[in-house]
């Protein structure tokens, strides 16, 4: 099942790119469609942050643990304009440290 998701979504993402280079611009020129498409990445990424950090590993509940502390560290690193890899691994290190203590 995981392979199907990997390859199916992979090919699908390629076709989405190819469609953009191939279809006439007016097909997706509808302003409402363009606005929705503009907002979708922001909505999805914000939801992914929330679910990754707050969803309990057992499911269907919210929980506060080392992941929230790690996200706080990520915010500080982003405010300090740290590069992507520093943000990601710095945040991982913060979570690992909290769990050690």
């Amino acid at each position: 099942m995981i392979w199907w998701a990997v390859l199916g979504a992979g090919v699908g993402c390629y076709l989405l790119k190819l469609a953009g280079l191939s279809v006439p611009a007016r097909v997706l020129g509808n302003p409402l469609v363009a606005r929705i498409a503009d907002l979708i990445p922001v909505a999805l990424l914000a939801a992914l942050v929330t679910v990754q950090v707050l969803a309990a590993p057992e499911g269907r509940a919210l929980t506060l643990d080392a992941r929230l502390f790690a996200l706080g560290v990520a915010v500080l690193l982003l405010l300090a304009r740290a590069p992507f890899l520093v943000v990601v691994f710095g945040s991982a290190a913060a979570a690992a440290l909290v769990r050690l203590l």
Binding site: V49, V53, A74, V75, V87, V88, S91
Partner: peptide
């Protein structure tokens, strides 16, 4: 290693 927490940081970045 805290890698589960790194996913949220990646999305935030």
């Amino acid at each position: 290693l805290g890698l589960d927490a790194a996913v949220g940081a990646a999305f935030l970045a």
